[in-house]
Simulated assay, not measured.
Amino acid sequence: MGSSRFSCVLWDVDGTIADASAGILPRIEIVLGELGKPSIPADQVNRWIGPPMLESFQELAGLSEDEAVVAVARYRGLAGEQGYANSVRLYDGVVDVIREVHAAGVPQTTASTKPSNQIEAIFEHFDLTDLFVAVHGATPTPGVNDTKADVLGRALDDMRARGVDVSRPVLIGDRHHDIDGARGFDVPVIFARWGFGSPEEEAGSILALDRPADLRDVLLG
């Protein structure tokens, strides 16, 4: 294994590896319109990217839990029809870092509240699958509101079961949900400023970086 201060790397997906907003936001608008709800205010756009969708439909659109379950099912149906990798772009430089970490022998996985089947489709489309030990995301079943802590706990357990050293993990993410979810597992977080989080959300991270390329020296230096 190559030199690294971390024994394994866990990645958030939306806002960290990929920008899927070009597909996510129009689908949300369709769902809100069908439910007779107003469009997303300009100052709330970034708040929709990253957190669990069930949570966002309740907190940002004011839906009841039952209404939010229906909204999530409709949203995911639209995503499936359009293609999970449709309108997704990868952040400049992030794949280079992932490939270098993989080449150094440092195990990688995801810990994202994006549904696991959507992550798998995106990784297959961009030829990233073989760079990760496994993919861990939210349970695709509507009505299941996996938190970051839920997914992170499963990811650590699975990596451990696969023989991966999880004694010195690090999570890379762009929202306070990443920091909040990692806290209970004592997993340090590197905050991705290139994503959708606000500066206020950096609190609690061990480091905040402006570009994916800046990760290289931190992870492998």
Rank of each mutant, 00 (worst) to 15 (best):
V189Q: 10
L215V: 04
D158G: 11
E100Q: 15
A71Q: 05
A155Q: 04
Y75F: 15
Y91N: 06
A103V: 09
T113A: 11
V101L: 12
V69W: 06
E202V: 12
I30Y: 08
V94C: 08
A85F: 02
G184Q: 10
I17G: 01
S39V: 03
D130F: 04
V135Y: 00
V144P: 00
T110R: 07
P41I: 01
V166I: 15
I40K: 00
Y75W: 04
I17Y: 04
F196Q: 07
V144R: 14
I206N: 10
A61M: 02
G204K: 05
W194S: 08
G23K: 02
F126C: 09
A138F: 04
V164C: 04
Q108S: 11
L220G: 08
F191Q: 06
K37R: 15
L78N: 04
V13Q: 01
S56G: 02
V170A: 11
S21M: 02
G221M: 09
L156N: 02
G36F: 05
N46Q: 09
V133W: 03
G36M: 05
E55K: 14
D214Q: 13
E81D: 14
I119K: 01
N86F: 09
L60T: 00
A85H: 13
P41N: 02
A138R: 00
V9Y: 07
E201I: 13
N117W: 06
V189I: 10
W48V: 00
D146C: 03
F123C: 09
F6W: 14
A192Q: 10
V97A: 12
L131E: 10
G62L: 02
R154P: 01
K148D: 05
P26A: 06
V164S: 04
L156A: 05
E67I: 04
